[in-house]
Design a protein around this nucleic acid. Sequence first.
RNA 1: GCCAGUGUAGCUCAGUUGGCCAGAGCGACUGAUUUGUAAUCAGUUGGUCGGGGGUUCGAAUCCCUCCACUGGCUCCA
Length: 644
Amino acid sequence: MIKLTMPDGSIREVASGITAYEVAKSISHGLAKKVLSAEINGEVWDLTRPITNDSSFKLLTWDDDGGASTFWHSSAHLLAEALENLYPGVKFGIGPSIDNGFYYDVDLGDYQLSPEDLPKIEKEMLSLASQKNTYERKEVSKKEALAYFEEKGDEYKVELLEDLQDGDITFYSQGNFTDLCKGPHIPDTGKIKAIKLLNIAGAYWRGDESRKQLTRIYGVSFPKKEALNEHLERLEEAKKRDHRKLGAELGLFMFSERVGAGLPIWLPKGEALRRRLEDFLREEQERRGYQAVRTPHIGKKDLYETSGHYAKYGEDSFQPIQTPKTDEEFLLKPMNCPHHCEIYAHLPHSYRDLPIRYAEFGTVYRYEQSGELHGLTRVRSFTQDDAHVFCTASQLKGEFLEVLDLTLYVFRALGFEDFTAQISLRDSENPDKYIGSESNWVAAESAIIEASKEAGIQTITEYGEAAFYGPKLDFMVKDALGRSWQLGTIQVDYNLPERFDLTYIGEDNAKHRPIMIHRAPFGSFERFIGVLTEHCAGKFPLWLTPTQIILLPISNVFNDYAKVVQSALAKEGIRVEIDERHEKIGRKIRDAEVNKIPYMAVLGEREMKENAVAIRQQGKGNIGTFSIEEWTKSMKKFAAISQD
RNA sequence: GCCAGUGUAGCUCAGUUGGCCAGAGCGACUGAUUUGUAAUCAGUUGGUCGGGGGUUCGAAUCCCUCCACUGGCUCCA
């Protein structure tokens, strides 16, 4: 007999060798039908795997993370089986579950898979699923496993096997398909009731650009048909939030083929919104002791050779600009920091001057690969809300905390509660990727880790994600379609002060090296506004939105009255428009609603007589009639930044 | 940069076994309607079919090439 500790803490005595499925059945038939896998001592297991030791025990259903991922992983195997039936000789890379579904990377030889093939594959998968084939686990020796895949001619699986330890290798089979896999899987294919293959993409084998590109098929599956429909509806909903679509609809920004790919152009409404954000941050930074500076958009190539950026990125950047003079080359600036280092170096500094904080909304230019461009979130020209803090070693942690506080203040003011703070450290296996001394790296990494801990933020640590000159703390948020983007960033840099030979005179009257912190709470205005647009589905906070209220005269007769109301509101700094078109009120309201203008004022006979406005709130409808004066006051209050 | 897909009017989209002057809805414009809380009616206008080259008697449709966009991969100071 063995003891199973259930999630509620109770203990079940069962015969050794019992399976999780048998335990589920002994609890209830309904549960046995729903259960997909089990968590045994924190590890997700097949339901059919015998349990032989005392264990903690938890049954996983679709609603548990482990349950859905098991389900999707099994769906990937089903996809592979269908592909093998339809395209004999297909070779397989890897086929994992992901956040929202699964994929399989396959090599179809000369066959060019197209989206039209997907329905056929879905059909085959559903037909295989209905056979209710069980997923069978089998432990195999490395020799056996290699023999199997060598015979099959699947060099990808052979390569994967070469990295595995003998005794740690399992196969899973369902129907006529066998795959190298550590599992676990759902009991049988019959649980998979709804499948949608979403798209096809190229993916380099093992993520290595120099290796063969396989065909990746993405899909999603569900235990119920309705769940698939709901999922597809959610995807449609998300597309409506896409900042590229909303940005065009709301007239925020545009792109022009003639201006160039990845070069966003800000339209009046977008610029109005952006300017508000800039002002917001500018004022906050002034309060926090930053000094604004401004530097040119180009700099001599030598500047970036000094900084090290040219050696690292020169080849992949916009190429140097020539002048009539020979041997004179300038670069479009990809970073503001070298310029700011020159400002620091301009005068000698005492330890009494530090910390010095230079801030600039600096526009930079980076030649992003053509396939990478994406709306406002990945562009070739963008403006960083940049600043560089020069401080002493003893000030580092305090400054880091101060920057962290500013970043969190900014995020909260804009309603971003759901972000991930990522600590990016070195990849210790590739030291050549980084410049700077070991001791500096250690000091910088520990400063970030400690400050994050002290600020009490939740973090995840990623090794190998550091910048080439230092570790960083990045704030990551997801867009409408679940893609993760970096917004704010804080980076400790011991390297640039070294390269630019920056110094200060210490208490001991000797020269010392300052430490530099790069930081940008928004990251860039472009990306931030892109993500913010999706975050609020185009319904921006009142203090940011380009038009705060639109006046809707019932007929032309009341246009003059509207102008009276307009000047009263405008006088208080409220951004107000009038819809003077010769249209019915229903039409004007509809257009204002579609344009997501937060407030509408309906103005007709009744309002004019009483010097009043009948207010309607976007998405909510009529909220009442107020005197002009009363409403102006309310608007002013609502539009204050502190309002959240 | 790589793989796959897409590109027709300001917007959303029809239109391919290659064949009359390339269509619709919305928008815009003009006129009528003077309107009370999510689309008033009528008329008019609008397109180098992404650019260039080729095949053909004939190309939006087939081929080549470049550009842009979409979904991924790789990259991201």
